[in-house]
């Protein structure tokens, strides 16, 4: 299991465009990715769930990656998170 935190640089936060990018880049990965903001969590494969986090610029996401290719998955995540 890999845990990472990320502060959103994009002032618009997690909106449709970055969410689509995250989901498409993770399509080739097999690990589970859970994104938490405060008390809400969503899978990085759940587009509506990620939108539902309502994450805004400057907010800190706590991300848990679990699976066989978790290191590779975490590396990809670091490059695509806005």
């Amino acid at each position: 299991m890999i845990q990472l935190t990320h502060v959103l640089n994009d002032p618009q936060g997690l909106h449709a465009r970055p969410i689509a990018t995250i989901a498409s880049k993770l399509a080739s990965c097999h690990s589970d990715v859970e994104i938490r903001l405060g008390e809400r969590t969503a899978s990085a494969r759940d587009l509506i769930g990620m939108l539902g986090l309502g994450a805004r610029g400057g907010e800190e996401l706590h991300i848990t990656v679990t699976g066989e290719d978790e290191e590779q998955t975490a590396d990809i995540l670091r490059t695509v998170l806005p």
Binding site: H15, A16, L47, I48, G49, L51, G52, G54
Partner: peptide, 20 residues
């Protein structure tokens, strides 16, 4: 209704279809 964002709304259908 699962998400509202001003310019967007997400709805999970009673039959499991999720729409944005």
């Amino acid at each position: 209704v699962t998400v509202t964002m001003g310019h967007a709304v997400g709805i999970t259908g009673d039959d499991g279809i999720e729409v944005l």
